[in-house]
């Protein structure tokens, strides 16, 4: 029983890591302040669940198809959203993405008016359980590999240049706007991928799983891990999930309430004592910066 729970939590942590890596690409590496990342997770989750639920008899075939389709759709949707929104800078970009997240949540709340099987604010039930530990683990490894290879290439260098100094990036002949669009869309596609995996892990979706508080959680994770550090994001995601979710089974009910009081205090303390996050921009093992 406990083992099963730990496997679930572990798989969940893998999903969160994939999504957080996407946000790190957007904010940590490119410097685009996004507070609506969970919305893309939600889009991926609901879209894939809608597909697998409607064609559940096809089993893993439709699951694979649904995942691929959610990744492509979140990529395209976020690209289209980004075209106007990325004209905004820093805090304003954050506000606009936060607004987008809230709009998506409201749409999900009302989704049952168009697709009754999406359940709206009652939540979407009985999604087939296709996601298992090997699948999330392989997905996570694939995402880490893709991200690492992207970061240490022409594309990743363009993003870093933009984050460091946008005007200098222009002067380096970098098409700043296009690279920003790509970074945002790619990071969001990671979130869509993670959402699709998540939907078939817990087999239940609710719009509040993807509201702006979840976006903020993801932001917390990447800042805690260290902006611009993949190792940091991976470790912070797992720590975050295990400390917050895992402790639920260990602690008695009386202390459980205090969990959510102590957690923000730790957060405030960490921001003060380790402003650069656990890892800064350092990497571990083969994630280390490789020079060409």
């Amino acid at each position: 029983m406990i083992n099963l729970y730990i496997i679930k939590i572990f798989s969940y942590a893998c999903c969160i890591t994939i999504s957080a890596l996407g946000l790190n690409l957007i904010y940590g590496y490119t410097g685009l302040f996004s507070l609506g990342h969970a919305a893309f997770m939600g889009i991926g989750a609901y879209l894939s669940a809608l597909l697998t639920k409607s064609f559940s008899s096809y089993g893993y075939l439709v699951y694979t198809g649904a995942i691929i389709l959610s990744v492509i759709s979140t990529f395209l949707i976020s690209y289209l959203i980004a075209i106007p929104i990325l004209k905004l800078k820093s805090d304003y970009l954050g506000i606009a993405t936060l607004g987008f997240g809230i709009i998506v949540k409201v749409l999900l709340d009302n989704s049952d008016k168009v697709f009754p099987q999406m359940g709206g604010s009652r939540g979407m039930l009985t999604i087939p359980n296709f996601t298992n530990l090997p699948i999330v683990l392989l997905s996570l490894i694939a995402v880490i590999l893709i991200m690492r290879n992207l970061i240490y290439s022409k594309f990743g260098r363009a993003l870093l240049a933009i984050r460091e100094d946008e005007n200098a990036a222009y002067a380096m002949g970098i098409d700043v706007y296009k690279q920003k669009l790509l970074s945002f869309a790619l990071g969001s596609a990671f979130a869509g991928f993670s959402g699709a995996l998540y939907a078939h892990l817990y087999c239940f979706l609710h719009p509040s799983n993807f509201d702006f508080l979840r976006s903020i959680d993801l932001m917390l994770i990447i800042v805690l891990g260290g902006l611009g550090s993949m190792s940091g994001t991976i470790i912070a995601s797992f720590l975050w999930v295990f400390i917050l979710e895992g402790l639920r089974i260990i602690l008695p009910q009386a202390i459980l309430d205090w969990r959510l009081v102590i957690y923000p205090l730790l957060l405030i303390l960490l921001m003060l004592l380790r402003p650069q996050g656990l890892f800064g921009n350092k990497e571990l093992l083969w994630l280390k910066r490789e020079y060409p």
């Binding site: 260098r157 380096m172 002949g173 060409p292």
Partner: peptide, 12 residues
């Protein structure tokens, strides 16, 4: 290195 970016021609 960043300055050489635009001369690089390989795809993503």
């Amino acid at each position: 290195l960043f300055a050489f970016n635009y001369q690089i021609n390989y795809s993503t």
